[in-house]
Deep mutational scan, measured.
Amino acid sequence: TTVEVQGVEYRFDNPEEAEKFAKKMAKSLNLRVELHGNKWRVE
């Protein structure tokens, strides 16, 4: 599972970890998070 934060990609073996990371990043950067296939995008 991939998390893309403002163009930078982070890879996770565990989808739940990816989701937690994406939501945490979105909250700290005041952005929103969307799931596209198996990629979380924070923008």
Rank of each mutant, 00 (worst) to 15 (best):
Y10F: 11
V42F: 06
R32E: 08
R41G: 04
V3W: 02
E34L: 08
E43G: 15
K24N: 12
A18R: 00
N14E: 09
E16K: 10
A18W: 01
E43P: 06
E19C: 15
G37F: 05
E4T: 11
A22R: 01
P15W: 08
L31Q: 05
E9W: 06
E16D: 12
R11I: 12
E9T: 13
R41C: 15
H36T: 10
E16P: 04
W40C: 05
G7V: 02
K20H: 11
G7N: 05
K20V: 11
M25G: 01
V8H: 08
V42Q: 03
K27G: 08
A22Q: 00
K27Q: 14
S28N: 11
P15Q: 07
V3R: 00
F12S: 00
E4H: 09
R41L: 14
E4W: 12
L31N: 03
T1P: 12
L35W: 13
T1Q: 10
G7F: 04
K20W: 11
A22N: 00
K23N: 08
R32S: 11
W40H: 03
R32M: 11
K39W: 05
K39I: 14
S28R: 14
P15H: 07
V5M: 07
F21N: 00
R41D: 03
V5I: 11
V3T: 01
K23H: 12
W40D: 02
E43F: 15
K39H: 09
E4S: 12
S28A: 14
N30H: 09
N38D: 11
E9M: 11
V8I: 12
A18Y: 01
E43C: 15
R11C: 15
R11D: 06
F21Y: 06
A22K: 01
N30M: 06
D13A: 10
A18G: 05
V3F: 02
V5S: 03
K23Q: 09
V42Y: 03
K20T: 11
G7Y: 03
G37H: 06
A22H: 01
E34W: 13
V3H: 00
E34T: 14
D13M: 10
E4D: 11
R32A: 10
N38V: 05
L31K: 05
L29F: 05
E17P: 02
T1G: 07
E9G: 04
G37A: 05
K39P: 01
H36K: 10
L35Y: 14
G37D: 11
K20G: 07
T1M: 13
E19Y: 11
N14S: 12
A18V: 00
D13I: 09
N30V: 04
A26N: 01
R41Y: 15
A22F: 02
M25I: 12
E4N: 09
G7D: 04
P15A: 12
S28D: 14
T1F: 15
V5A: 04
E43S: 13
Q6Y: 12
Q6N: 11
A18F: 01
E17H: 07
S28K: 14
E34N: 09
N38R: 06
A26R: 02
L29C: 15
